[in-house]
C-alpha cells in the first residue's frame, strides 16, 4: 500500500483526485488543504508520493516545494513529487527538472496522470527517450 499526499486548497480538486484513484486499491490518499497541513503530515506520516498544487492561499505550493528540496530531513526521504498545476510546463520553467519530479498540467486525463504516478512510485519503468 502506497500513500499519496494530495496538497491542494481547492476542495473540488480533492473530489477529482478521489475519483482518479477510486479504482486503485493499492493507493491510499492523504488530503491536505494547505501547505501548513501538508508539512504537518510530512512530519509524522510516511508518504510515498506528493501531488502538489502551486498557486494556493495563503501559502504558495512553491514554498512547500522549496522545503522539500532544501530541508535536510525531508530531502533525505527522496519523496517523488508531481506538480499538478494549470500553469503546466511552460509556466513552471524555473523549476529544476529531476528524476523525482514530474509536472502535469491541469486539466489532466486520468490514465496519463496514473501512468506518471506509477512511474514515480517505481511500479513501471519510464520509457526510454
Amino acid at each position: 500500500m502506497k500513500r499519496v499526499l494530495i496538497v491542494d486548497d481547492d476542495i473540488n480538486m480533492h473530489v477529482i483526485y478521489q475519483d482518479t484513484f477510486a479504482e486503485r486499491s493499492d493507493i491510499q490518499i492523504v488530503s491536505a488543504y494547505s501547505v501548513a497541513k501538508a508539512l504537518e503530515y510530512l512530519g509524522k506520516e510516511i508518504i510515498d508520493l506528493i501531488v502538489l498544487d502551486i498557486i494556493m492561499e495563503p501559502i504558495s505550493g512553491s514554498y512547500l516545494y522549496l522545503k522539500l528540496t532544501q530541508d535536510k530531513t525531508i530531502r533525505e526521504k527522496k519523496i517523488p513529487i508531481i506538480i499538478s498545476s494549470v500553469l503546466g510546463d511552460k509556466g513552471l520553467k524555473h523549476i529544476k527538472k529531476s528524476q523525482f519530479l514530474a509536472i502535469i498540467e491541469k486539466p489532466f486525463e486520468r490514465d496519463a496522470f496514473l501512468l506518471k504516478v506509477d512511474q514515480l512510485l517505481g511500479n513501471v519503468q519510464p520509457r526510454k527517450k
Partner: peptide, 14 residues
Amino acid sequence: LKTPIAMMQMAYDM
C-alpha cells in the same frame, strides 16, 4: 481563467 475551465473539464470526465 484556466483553473475553472480545467475543473469543469475534469468534472466532465468524472
